[in-house]
Design a binder for these strands. Structure first.
Lengths: 338, 338
DNA sequence: TACGTTTTCGAAAACCTTTTCGGTCGGCTG
DNA sequence: CAGCCGACCGAAAAGGTTTTCGAAAACGTA
């Protein structure tokens, strides 16, 4: 009936419409060299067979698959997902599809996935890391453009898109200062993370501009956990009971801070304001009180990555590190001192 | 040098090895009809050109792309991700790649993605929904097998894989009972979710078997939020101050429960045990004390979906609803009464 | 040497589409 | 009527691979 057991092909459409394969193709692709009447015939036939063109064959000719690879190191990580969504979003509207590959932080698996993606002739790659520190480059002589998101590449010849952690730290402290806070402490996470130091630096810079010193006598490095937030807050209060604000390096830590402040019967935000980092909704929005925090704009980063890649696919790729600014989210855990 | 500007093709390999394209293909694919010496020559040539076969062309012939589509309705949703990871995991080892598509809960976008995936000639589809209630089928006459994960299809002719919420509720209450708790309350989420009722039913069933009644006089339905967990706990304590355990319908709710129990100076787990649902690590593991909870085995569900799909690709697909059991995670928020 | 058998290799078709280029047909001008 | 032009259509090549089938080579046997 339709020419065989498989899916209908352009040949079937052409036969049904009573034209040649070439004209059928032209009709479906809005080429000008076909009469309106003929085009209608073809379209009707295609509709009738519910024909959908074989993208593989198209790609074979046009040398463009309309696919990109998304190589993530850590899917469960909360940072890959928004980036991935942003990228999917930016592509989704067009005719590009995304191959998702999770390397699970394993180098050989990453290599394996990379080869598979190249075999599939993806038009480009986005590599999103698990943590904001630099990672090894995939190499300089890949046949497709590559964009590194979140984790920059170690090779400055690559193009990397990262969040502005220094600016984020500055943003948080600026917000506290504007609300009249003067005795601001900073509790943050794992000191092996560059991001922890960057955020701290931004915070200290802004304090210095105001002629303020960090309350608590130091930046409290530890781990990115609620438990550390609790522990550090206890130590902090012991050492310096008079703080009026805490900048936490992550929302998890902030939750720990809130917990201990409640235990100590300190009113939030009246006596102590708290601000977090990440805008991890489930933690921040549901906190008691809801947590002000710094959002890294990861979806925007993902979208930008997609756009840059898109531009690079026909054209040439830039290099270096491009920084995306953070955004302040104010909720009830910070408020002006009255 | 390598025969042109583009990537090396089989033709280039053949030329370099001094054989025909056909033999080159056979050599690379371990076909038996080629002399060992010739095969070595070809392999060396391929290596030298760092040749990787064009999967598109292969797919065109073999009528199998080695790709599957993962159609999710809600990427940011915490339930899609583990399933997605499980599926990626099960496929990743082989030679299948995954197209990720997020419909954002929008029907026309879903249709759009579906068409794109079919155009790309995916070998199969996994559809993962945003909530555990039934969703419309994609249709019966798709040219590839489809598996519904998490959200079952409304059409019983489709194959759906879901979590056993009744069993999960039973598991939670059973755990509490075994630890000597008798006055068990249940606070859960949005009553428009079938899962909320299923979990409650499992809980009530197990209580009935023991001749126990639900403490608090009712199942407390509300919303899947920490705030509701707090509010419900306050009402519950007012009505029935003597509870010795709370089964929360989600970890978020459980966090709210813990919060209020702490405020009321009730010792956990000595006076009141708390168990959650979801095993959402960031909430459960970091709670004070760490939260016992029920894990839905979503990665396993994803893996199973991949396996079922794989089996269906060559073979025929089953139908109906297949249920995956839950798993108890015990942490410190539950302990035997002494 | 003649012949049969096994092994090894290559030519060509097939997969499905796009695109170029040449051809047909109608109508128009001189 | 001859010639030309524009509009429309089809044959065929191309893209990279797999696979079938026939041909050639190598080998053993009579």
């Amino acid at each position: 009936m339709d020419g065989g057991p498989g899916r209908p092909t352009l040949r079937d459409v052409a036969r049904l419409a009573g034209v040649s394969i070439a004209t059928a193709s032209k009709a479906l692709n809005n080429q000008p060299q076909v009469r309106a009447e003929t085009r209608a015939k073809v379209l009707r036939a295609a509709e009738q067979l519910s024909f959908s063109p074989n993208t593989l064959a198209q790609a074979l000719i046009t040398q463009r698959t309309g696919t990109v690879g998304l190589l993530t190191s850590d899917l469960e990580g909360r940072f890959s997902i928004p980036i991935l969504m942003g990228a999917e979003d930016a592509f989704g509207t067009g005719r590009t599809s995304v191959f998702l590959c999770d390397a699970r932080g394993d180098n050989v698996r990453e290599r394996h996935h990379l080869n598979a993606l190249l075999s599939r002739r993806v038009d480009g790659l986005i590599v999103v890391g698990a943590r904001p520190d630099a990672r090894p480059s995939l190499g300089r002589d890949l046949p497709v453009p590559v964009i590194y998101a979140y984790s920059p590449s170690e090779d400055p010849a690559d193009l990397s898109l990262v969040t502005d952690n220094v600016g984020g730290g500055r943003l948080a402290v600026d917000h506290l200062i504007r609300h009249g806070r003067r005795r601001i402490a900073h509790i943050t996470g794992d000191p092996t993370y560059g991001a922890a130091h960057d955020r701290a630096r931004g915070a200290l810079d802004r304090l210095a501009e105001e002629g303020l010193e960090l309350a608590g006598g130091q930046v409290w490095f530890g781990s990115w956990s609620e438990a550390w937030g609790r522990g550090a807050t206890r130590m902090l209060l012991e050492r310096d009971p008079d703080i009026d604000a805490v900048f936490a390096g992550s929302d998890e830590i902030a939750r720990g801070v809130l917990d201990v402040l409640h235990q100590e019967k300190l009113a939030i935000p009246r006596q102590v304001a708290v601000i977090g980092f990440d805008n991890w909704n489930i933690l921040a929005a549901n906190a008691r009180p809801p947590l002000s925090t710094v959002d890294m704009n990861l979806e925007a980063l993902g979208r930008l990555a997609a756009q840059r890649l898109f531009a690079a696919i026909d054209g040439t790729l830039g290099s270096g590190i491009e920084t995306i600014g953070c955004r302040l989210i104010t909720r009830e855990s910070t408020a002006p001192l009255d």
